[in-house]
């Protein structure tokens, strides 16, 4: 069997420079969780179907389970661990708490990152746009209603404080 090639990669993770030695057949998800200890990003299916592993690469929501690790060399990656500014929660996080948007919470990190990507692109989405924005994230517990409500609420709050918290 072929040996996997190894690659020294550098990228920014939640704004900080990081580097890692990765194997060709590692996924970004594995590197984040196993190598860098960023376990906030979840593994649910490893086939792009559940959205639990959603992170932002150069601002776009993507499935970390489908990305070969060497591909992220030079990219900017945001994970759930970087959503709050220190102790100050992002308006989305606050809204998720206030609206009781999560039950088991396992879909939460991916859901929140999809929601962030959406609001970064469309600050005042319609409910339809919100539903489309999170259509790649499966939640088995909540039935989505409160998640949608929370994202709408966060978008209103962010509009009120003039886009702060993006």
């Amino acid at each position: 069997m072929t040996e996997a090639s190894t690659h020294h990669i550098r990228f920014t993770l939640n704004g900080s420079e990081v580097s890692a030695d990765v194997k060709a057949n590692d996924t970004l998800l594995n590197v984040l969780r196993e190598q860098l200890g960023y376990t906030g990003t979840k593994r649910g299916c490893e086939t792009g179907e559940c959205g639990a592993c959603t992170v932002l690469v150069d601002g776009k929501a993507v499935n970390a389970c489908l990305i070969l690790a060497p591909k992220v060399d030079g990219r900017a990656i945001q994970t759930i661990e970087g959503l709050a500014k220190g102790a100050e929660l992002h308006p989305l996080q606050k809204a998720f708490i206030e609206e009781g948007a999560l039950q088991c919470g396992f879909c939460g990190p991916g859901m929140l990152m999809s929601a962030k990507a959406l609001l970064d692109e469309i600050p005042n989405p319609t409910e339809d746009q919100v539903r489309r924005g999170i259509s790649g994230n499966i939640c088995r517990c909540t039935g989505y209603a409160k998640i949608v409500k929370a994202i709408m609420k966060a978008s209103r709050q962010m509009a009120r404080v003039g886009g702060e918290g993006a």
Binding site: T39, G40, T79, L89, G100, F106
Partner: peptide, 20 residues
């Protein structure tokens, strides 16, 4: 209407689940 006691851990990705 009370927030879950572990809600902050959940939304910040710090809840530790099985694989974590």
């Amino acid at each position: 209407r009370l927030p879950r006691h572990d809600a902050v851990l959940q939304v910040t990705g710090r809840s530790l689940y099985g694989e974590d």
